[in-house]
Each structure stands twice: as C-alpha cells, then as structure tokens.
Nucleic acid binder design. Structure first.
Lengths: 238, 238
DNA sequence: AAAGCGAATTTGTATATACAAGTTATAATT
DNA sequence: AATTATAACTTGTATATACAAATTCGCTTT
C-alpha cells in the first residue's frame, strides 16, 4: 500500500510548483483538502507538515497555509542529493571522470571517519566532475565494503546512489555535513582546473543508513566560484 | 497551557545530551514513554518526530528509536541562530563593533532583496564581529522599518534578535540562506583582518516572520579560515 | 545444534472526536 | 458611521482505536 499522506504531499508540491494557487497564494483549508482527497484531517495535516518542513508553505493559525514563493527553483540542496540528481534537475551539461577505483585498507584516519577497525576493506572512489568543460569538483568517496560488496567503472561513471538504492536496496537515510574553506592540496591542483583560485570549498559528509549504520564518508572539494549552497531554515525557539 | 509534546521533546533532548541511555543507545519504546509521561502515544510520537527531525534519533520500525551520537556538540548551526546565541553556546570570547547604524532609502538593489518599494525607509546596521581579538566577520543587516520602528546603538551592540523577539514581540519564523565564496570588497579589506586571504565566505539571508512577511535581509561575510558550517540532512526520496 | 515457526513487541498509517486558540466576516449596538 | 460583540471558519493540541509491517525472541521441530 502506498502511503496516502505522501502521495498527497507530492501532489501538492507539484501544484505549488506549477503555480496552481497563484492568485490567493493560499492552499485550500484543511477541511477542503480532506474532501478533495477523500481522507481524514490528520492525514492532510501530515502532508501539510511535510510541506512546511521543506519550505513550501507557512501555516498560520486561524488563517490557513500561505504558499512561500521564495524562488525555490535555483538550487535546492538541502537533504542528501547526488551529483547526477542535481545536474539532471538543473539541466547542466556535466560529465564525470573516474580517476581512481580501488579497494584499500582502512588507515588510522579512515577508521575514525568510517568508524571501522584498522585494515578493514574500504572502497575508494575518486571522481572529477566536469561542468561545461571545466573540472570544478573533486569527489573522494569511501564506502565500507561490508555494505557495498561490488563496484564497477560503469556504476561510478553513472550514479553510485542509484546503484546503492535500486540494486543493493540500501536505505540511505541521513547525513552529517561539514562545510569549510581550505587550501588546495597538490591533488586538488593536479586534478582540478583551479585557475589561480587559492582556496577550495570542502564538504565532508558522513552518510548513514536506515538502521543508523555509517557506510560512507565523502570529501567533496569545489572550486570556490562554482560553489553555491542554498538552505531553508526554521527558527528554533529555546 | 504549555504544549505537552514540546516539554517532552525538551526533556528527552536534555536526557540524550547527558547520555542518560548510553548503554543501550536506545530510547524507551513509545508505549513505555506514554506511561513515563502519562500521556497518549500520539503525543509521544509528536515529540519523537521532532527529535528525528533535529538529528537526535533515528526511528527504526519494529526496533525502536536509536540515539544518534554523531558528536552533536561541536557546531549545531542548523536553524536560524543569532551571533550572540552562537558565541554564548560555544563559550567564545566575542565582541561586536558597531560600524554603522542609519536609516536609508531603498535603492534598486534593496527593493528586490527586501521586496519593498523604491525610497521606502530601511534600517542599515553594519557590525564587525571580533573573536579572540581578530575581526573575522562583517555583518550587514537591513531591516524593513515598517516592522522595526526604533533601533539604538545599545541594542545593536547587544543582540538585535533578543530585542526583536522579546521587546517588539516579532515572531521570526524562517529564512532562506545562500552560501557563496566571493572576492573581498574594499569594505571587507578595510573592516576585517583578512591576513592575506583572497576570499570571503558570504551568507546572504532573507528572514521572514510568522505571517510570511519579509522583514530582514542580511549579508554575513566571513574570513574563510574562521568559517565552519555543520548541517544535518535527511535523504528525500523522489 | 540448527532451522523454522509463531507469538510478542515495536513503530507506521489512517481515522475519529473534542476542545483550544487565532482570524475574519457579519450583525448589533452605540 | 464607528465601535463592539457574536458567530463562523481555520489551525493547534490531546486523546483513542484499529490495523499494518518489521523486528525480536522463545519454542518446537528437525
């Protein structure tokens, strides 16, 4: 059975993005929605709460759900999104160059980053991302081999996430990301078209599965002029 | 009346942060929690969903709520947090220098950023943030004067957000933030201790109230070596 | 000892009801 | 005409029930 509140959520997202309620900039009331979707109010409220979380609407007590139109279209990178999904959504002419694909043993550094034991096997994948002809992103991925037994050149050049989720049926669930600006390493200078830029933006991620097991560590290194990150944040009252 | 699920959420956060369930790294089951807090299961579930949203737990069907221990203690900057709140939480020796405080008229640029009409009055606040003696952040705030009639030197040197929320009773609700890396302007070089760094990290924010009215635009310009942003993200399935 | 089955436990979804609290529009009063 | 009070509408909170789906654990069987 498909989850009702999720399909309602997706339907509402589609309608908002196509400006279905542009005039009023308001969603129908919860009671109206229950009738439109022939369901209960609580189910509607679950869908609306998802919309609010993702920055599509703002709920105002006594009034209704106001649609937030802050051009949500330019670079929505909250959540965990793969390079292929991103470039596809933005219609960018992108290309992936596989630079290294190997099984290595965990050294001191990786044991802490992947929380595994010394010398345990790890997939190392090093890829350069080319956008309109320029090498601007260097992605270094490390996968715990326990969760990812096999990897091929073809998979890495296409979409690893697609393979992990649809073939291996891994449930990628949440991530901790850290953004910093660092000096380029020799490797950065070799593999990227840095064009004299003296910094790179570094995003270090630890990615977890459904059952809270840590299975991936990634360093994504960007040329600063090609980096942009957009976030929707809600104020948390203490 | 105080919201039950919120007080339960806050109590659980406190217990998680003090490692109350360290051995099992699991929360009690929902039914146990209903008895502990003498409430209904739905109310417990509301609190648990907040914990999951904020990255404290991962719920696993059939098992329970696993506590996520990814050292949540180093830099939790998701949500909208003011400089004063941040430095206070991290025990940093920080100092604010008010560089400019004036009412200006909206020019072409600000009309689009604050979505107001040309020549309407705007508060401009320009502040330099000093951390352990170094000027590393330049904050340029613009407030729609309609929502913020008065501002003083004292307020700007203390905490504007504190004033807005507690004195003016404004309900700051959500924000859209954009992170980029840019070349320093002449103003950056004048006001900050850039120490030869040839880039600044720029965070542009549009901040909204409860009723979805846009009331603030901010540019926060950071020396790259002193910038770090940590995010907790959940994978969104399409 | 190992495998398989089933019951108990635990979270997920859907629905229903009652009342509280904020907003808006209408009607009544001054 | 302006103000005030009332009613209608809308979202927020709390509670209850029923069943689905995944995991765990103990028991039985092989």
């Amino acid at each position: 059975m498909q989850k009702k509140y999720l399909t309602i959520y997706q339907d509402l997202v589609k309608k908002i993005e196509v400006n279905h309620w542009a005039e009023s900039s308001m969603l129908p009331s919860e009671y109206e929605l229950t009738e439109m979707y022939a369901t209960s109010r609580e189910t509607i409220r679950k869908a609306l709460n998802l919309l609010a979380q993702d920055g599509y609407i703002q709920k105002v007590r006594g009034k209704g759900s106001v649609i937030i139109d802050v051009n949500k279209f330019d670079f929505p990178v909250s959540g965990i999104v793969s390079f292929k999904e991103l470039t596809g959504k933005l219609n960018l002419k992108a290309n992936t160059i596989l630079h290294e694909l190997a099984i290595i043993e965990a050294d001191q550094d990786l044991t802490s980053k992947l929380k595994i034991r010394l010398h345990e096997p790890i997939w190392k994948v090093c890829r350069v991302r080319e956008i309109s002809g320029e090498k601007v992103i260097l992605d270094k991925d490390y996968f715990n081999k326990k969760f990812v037994p096999a990897l091929t050149k073809e998979i890495c050049e296409d979409s690893i996430y697609n393979y992990l989720e649809n073939e291996l049926k891994l449930n990628i669930s949440f991530a901790r990301k850290e953004f910093t600006v660092e000096d380029p390493t020799r490797e950065d200078r070799q593999l990227l078209d840095l064009e004299g830029y003296s910094n790179v933006v570094v995003i270090k991620s630890m990615v977890f599965l459904d059952d809270t097991s840590l299975f991936q560590y990634t360093e994504s290194r960007h040329r600063p002029d090609k980096f942009k990150f957009v976030d929707f944040a809600r104020r948390v009252k203490s």
